[in-house]
Design a protein around this nucleic acid. Structure first.
Length: 607
RNA sequence: GGUCCAGUAGCUCAGUUGGAUAGAGCAACAGCCUUCUAAGCUGUCGGUCCCAGGUUCGAGUCCUGGCUGGAUCACCA
């Protein structure tokens, strides 16, 4: 999705070297040019001997020889020229290279203690702006926001680790007709209730009034329909909606009392959101408020009128004609001059561009808004903003529940706070059932449960490709075994435990190693996986996909557990082998910590 | 109806720009704790990669057409 403007020089990998040599070998052997793209390098499948594999089928046209012979010739060429290549074998059109032990050992020795292994912090000058969360001030955060927040935060961290400068921004949807609804409900039926008087989180209190409004509004509509109105008429004529509209206009005119109420209720909500964000572990570099940007949006609408790209209808409403693009007409300003969603987003996009002149603007927003972002891009381009080309909509699928969908207006949602509570509670129960660590203080235990519960939740949400609609089944999703966050956390704790024991026994394993003999299969597998980490981070950044990091981390943890099972360390008599395995464990531990860090998952030293 | 997205084991999901015999976890069943953490490891069972064509040395992956599911096409945000 994102392309790298500056090729990454810091991460020079053996794959690149192999590629270059293959291109050269084809040139020298067959006198033909091949592009970088046609050279495919992949990891050798476990059932064959080798570390890297090159597919030679694409070169047969040039060599005018059979696959085996071509592979043999290229293999000889590379084995001759690269000291890192130990040997090679050919199976059909597949050329498998075995890298030398000294290559793997050098990789191991050079990187195992590097705390920033796999990450590249050579920041570009221009930032990438990532918007996520974008809450609505009258709805408490729910399951959908959880996916959004985790995705946005993690994508930002991954981009940073890949060498980009990132600005994390939130856009608070703090104005509009929906806000008037909860304000009106509070005025009418609130009886002066406050978060303090009710001992409630502010966002929950305001959310309740929003639900209350909707309920009463529906009652009014039913009455009107019974008195002979059509449904559409009733929806427009109900006194509650008329009052809400009047309130919105008062707000836009800056009416003192209305503004004051609005500020007070918003403050309640922000206090509530802060608690949720903090617990979730996400943060922002900058917060935009729509109440500050919608006026800029209106200016852009005026600009569009002057440029003749928008037009006005008889009632005074302003529209943009998108029929050339195969779309409809889009409303930008109501007849009463109040702004709509698109107006605000035009303004925020402009403001954000002016603030940072970013190379890319990423919007983490659900896929139900694909149309909105298509339109946003088109309109910005019509206004002559060339940078609109760099707007990316990172859309993600909805989170569905086993029994139908969530409906926030009816209050049928999986609330983010409740969900976190539940996960942490399960972590507590599970740990207690396993009978672990009676020596933990209550504070230490609480911290561990929090880590595990949230780790399970985060991993569950992030391991799935963002594009997919995912199913959240509370019963099955809250598992702590298998492909889960706690499994990875457990692996880390296990590694730390061994290293702790080694230290207690005074075993030092910090030297560079010269390993006698060959690496064992599991050891080699681990080295290969660790070797992949840098590439995984880069790919995850390009694809804006935390799922790639999550799945990589699982593979690594799984491979380590297999290694752990069959390879003693502290009891290994050969000191050199023992120390190598301890060093390898440390390397894996560091990498797990680094990778989970990109996902916002903390790993404990004991569990 | 138009547009966009998805469809892989009973369930939840992996599957880097097309590459070798499509992989995990859960569930089910059978094993492994006096030995560095059993939240682990090993094994068994489980597949028409939605269907049909096409492209080519090669298709889960690309193209076309269907089928199924979801989203969207608001003076809600």
């Amino acid at each position: 999705m994102l392309t790298f403007d500056t090729p990454n020089q810091v991460v020079v990998m053996i794959e690149h070297l192999l590629k270059e040599k293959v291109i050269q070998s084809v040139k020298d052997l067959y006198g033909a040019e091949v592009s970088v793209k046609t050279v495919q390098i992949q990891k050798t499948r476990p059932e064959f001997e080798g570390d890297f594999t090159i597919v030679v089928y694409p070169f047969l046209r040039l060599s005018k020889k059979g696959p085996e012979q071509t592979a043999e010739e290229i293999g000889n060429y590379l084995a001759d020229q690269l000291k890192e290549v130990e040997s090679f074998n050919v199976i059909k059109g597949f050329l498998n290279f075995v890298m030398s032990n000294s290559y793997w050992l050098a990789f191991f020795n050079d990187n195992r203690d590097d705390g920033s292994f796999g990450k590249v912090y050579a920041a570009e000058k221009e930032a990438v702006v990532v918007e996520y969360s974008a809450p609505n001030t009258n709805k408490p955060l729910h399951l959908g926001h959880v996916r959004n927040n985790l995705l946005g935060w993690s994508v930002s961290e991954i981009l940073k680790a890949s060498g980009r400068k990132v600005v994390k921004v939130n856009l608070v949807n703090d104005r509009g007709i929906h806000i008037s609804k909860s304000m009106l409900a509070w005025q009418k039926w609130g009886g002066g209730k406050t978060p303090e008087s009710e001992s409630m989180k502010g966002d929950k209190l305001v959310g309740d009034f929003y639900v209350m409004f909707d309920k009463e509004y529906k009652c009014q509509m039913v009455e009107l329909v019974e008195s002979g109105m059509t449904k559409e008429e009733a929806a427009k004529k109900a006194t509650l909606i008329l009052e809400a509209q009047e309130m919105l206009q008062k707000w836009e005119q800056g009416d003192h009392a209305t503004r004051k109420l609005w500020e007070q209720m918003n403050d309640w909500v922000y206090d509530g959101f802060d608690v949720t964000y903090k617990r979730m572990g996400i943060d922002f570099d900058k917060i935009y408020y729509e109440s500050n940007t919608y006026l800029l949006g209106k200016k852009l609408v005026d600009e569009g009128m002057e440029k003749g790209v928008f037009f006005k209808k008889d009632d005074g409403s302003v529209w943009c004609d998108l029929s050339e693009e195969g779309l409809d007409e889009k409303l930008l300003l109501r007849a009463d001059r109040t702004s709509v969603y698109m107006t605000q987003d035009l303004g925020t996009a402009q403001l954000r561009y002016d603030d940072y002149h970013p190379s890319d603007l990423i919007y983490v927003v659900g896929n139900e808004q694909n149309y909105h972002f298509d339109v946003l891009k088109i309109i910005m381009k019509k206004l002559g903003r060339e940078w609109a080309e760099h707007i990316h909509h990172l859309n993600y699928g909805m989170v569905e529940l086993p029994h139908g969908k969530m409906k926030s207006r009816e209050g049928k949602v999986v609330d983010a706070d409740d969900l976190m509570d539940e996960m942490v509670e399960i972590a507590r129960k599970t740990t207690e059932e396993l009978g672990k660590f009676d020596d933990f203080t209550p504070e230490e235990s609480a911290k561990l449960y929090e880590m595990l519960g949230l780790g399970a939740l985060k991993y569950f949400m992030l391991k799935v490709d963002p594009m997919r609609t995912m199913l959240f089944n509370p019963k099955e999703s809250l598992d702590f075994n298998g492909n889960t966050g706690p499994f990875i956390q457990y692996t880390h704790a296990r590694i730390k435990s061994v290293l702790r024991k080694a230290e207690e026994r005074g075993v030092s394993y910090s030297d560079r190693f010269e390993l006698p003999g060959a690496l064992e299969e599991k050891e080699k597998n681990l080295l290969k996986l660790l070797h992949d980490y840098r590439q995984t981070v880069q790919m995850a950044a390009e694809n804006l996909s935390p799922a790639m990091v999550a799945n990589y981390t699982y593979e690594l943890a799984k491979e380590y557990n297999q290694f752990y099972h069959g390879h003693p360390m502290l009891k290994e008599p050969d000191e050199n082998v023992r120390n190598f395995r301890l060093g390898l464990s440390g390397f894996v531990g560091n990498t797990i910590k680094s990778a989970t860090g990109l996902l916002g998952i903390e790993v404990p030293d004991r569990m």
